[in-house]
Design a protein around this nucleic acid. Structure first.
Lengths: 333, 333
DNA sequence: TTTCAGTCTGTGAACGTTCACAGATGCTTC
DNA sequence: GAAGCATCTGTGAACGTTCACAGACTGAAA
């Protein structure tokens, strides 16, 4: 349990001064090759590892960013997409030696904690996930002036918080266009909550293709849960029994819709075609497997990280990134 | 962009010394009510928030713990259980003002990064997730002497790394017993990888009930993926066409097994009963919905955090915690 | 030869806390 | 009235870095 070696110890072993060691550590210019080598050797010999707290104290940088999970409903519970996001972001940040701190913003108490944390300068940046319209956390972030990006647009704050996202609108168009091309005539949709980009934009894409045919009667709203999808489908069937296709804004809700259709005695895809969105693991476990829209989630995460790093590095302004989606045809259509 | 207020500013406003403010901040004994109130008021007035880096520098504590995701295969991708774990752990730790830093240990490079991070004293504790037998990270942790716990036993290191887990073995017994009671005679199993506790212990529980009847022919191994479950089921059917039930060690693999059974023309549950494990979201999306074993994941996470906090607070030794599971009967059996 | 720019190094001060100590005050007890 | 204890407060030093500055050395240009 010997004391951890400090920069002084390294300096002593290398036969140089503290300043030179610091310069090596920070890749500063003006270090002679000899000194550089000696320091490297001394670091290896002593097993030195930098004390971030001490560095942070003087640089006012922390080398960490916060990922804030806003948690409307219990989405987090069920959505495997978070894992991809988390994993990719952690990886990319680690490459820059930046660590990812998790925080949850479920209620106002949580949100205050996040704000306090950031106001205290405990992180260099913020990575928002599934933040919904009107979240007052967003304004607090702007007020604090901390670098912030979001995965998926924050509705109403698109120009304030840069983001990367899949092209929800075009994805919905792809699916709707496909259903039309397959000869479906009465096409309904089950949307996500309209204060989320996935809710609003996928509905817009749907309407883009169908125009006047996208009547109110053929639109139902879900909450991204399987149960929500199931009851939305039931309501649709009651209101418009003659529908022959439905575009559901998430795979999980689509799984619920399949259950409702089965309960109503409709065959999929013969009587009703079902299209999902996400291409999550669920799309393969249902029977029949879901035709769906694949989002390039990994790339979304990477781009979001890239935007955040740019902001942290001092960029004044960065442009949102929108990435293309793919139609994945399986047996539900 | 005024400078952030420090403890000195608070002291000045409150009309006390730096030491007294520090005492209030740390709930020390021996602070007069008057001083306490004045400091509280000054903190509110100045908007002061503590600088953790400075504190950390002198206390040698960081106020953070690392969650290390070991990533054999692509489990993380598909397993929604991680979300529950992450969410619960983050919450519980936040209550103690400890923040959760994510790290991935997928390859040796990652592992070195984790080791270096911990050796540098950048975290007060470690929370291992899905670490598999023989992971050399575990020995490094012991060597460093950092407080460490695991979610789920680390096979071969049960006595070194305390853990909380669901009672995998008894859960498997519950399911197997149930299948026997339902009159099934030829019961097979699809296990997880045997270097994970869920793989080894669930197989043991299965064998506990069936005794000699648990013959090699009726045991197949999967990798916790849906595809793995599907091909394992196909192999089982080929080897033992007369099986009338199968206990699958995870819901996701069970979804794959259902697909294989359907492809082979077997009806579920009439011809073959299928039991899963986890009670994850998948269990409800399959057709028919899965009979499965529910793990108290939230409590597992809470207990794991509790163990970790105890170790951080200086406990010499803590006992592993094993929590009971529940049989959830649905339509697949 | 002098000047200058470029390269390299060492040093004091600062970052914002906590800790240990010393000292002051008030209350009890003899 | 002195001694002793508990309560409360202020202060210097320390934690391990980075930063800005000053100074030494080198080689090229004037």
């Amino acid at each position: 349990m010997a004391k951890r070696p400090t920069i002084h110890d390294v300096a002593a072993v290398a036969g140089v001064s503290r300043g030179t060691v610091s310069r090596v550590l920070n890749d500063d210019r003006y270090v002679s090759p000899a000194a550089h080598a000696a320091v490297k050797r001394a670091i290896a010999e002593t097993g030195y590892v930098l004390n971030r707290a001490a560095r942070s104290l003087v640089t006012q940088r922390t080398g960490s960013v916060v990922m804030v999970l806003s948690e409307p409903q219990e989405r987090l519970f069920e959505d495997p997409n978070y894992s991809v996001l988390l994993r990719t972001a952690t990886r990319r940040l680690a490459e820059r030696d930046i660590s990812l701190v998790m925080m949850i913003a479920g209620n106002d108490g949580d949100r205050d904690r996040v704000v306090r944390y950031l106001r205290g300068g405990h992180a260099d940046g913020v990575f928002l996930v599934s933040t919904h319209a009107g979240d007052r956390l967003v304004d607090a972030l702007v007020d604090i002036g901390v670098a912030a990006v979001a995965q998926g647009a924050v509705i109403g704050r698109e120009n304030v918080i840069p983001y990367a996202a899949a092209d929800d609108r075009e994805g919905a168009r792809q699916m709707t266009r496909y259903l039309v091309e397959r000869g479906r005539r009465r096409i309904a949709t089950i949307t996500g909550p309209l204060d989320t980009p996935g809710g609003a934009l996928r509905l817009e894409g749907f309407a883009d293709i169908l125009g006047r045919k996208a009547s109110r009667r053929l639109i139902e709203h879900g909450d991204y849960t399987q149960l929500g999808g199931e009851s939305a489908m039931a309501r649709l069937l009651e209101r418009a029994p003659d529908i022959d296709a439905v575009f559901v804004a998430s795979d999980l809700m689509a799984a619920g819709a399949l259950a409702a259709l089965r309960a109503a005695g409709r065959r999929v895809p013969e009587d009703v075609a079902v299209g999902g969105f996400d291409d999550s693991a669920v799309a393969l476990t249902t029977h029949p497997p879901l035709t769906t829209i694949r989002q390039p989630l990994e790339r979304v995460a990477e781009e979001t990280v890239r935007l955040l790093l740019a902001l942290i590095d001092g960029a004044e302004h960065v442009e949102p990134v929108i990435l293309p989606t793919d139609l994945i045809v399986r047996e539900s259509t």
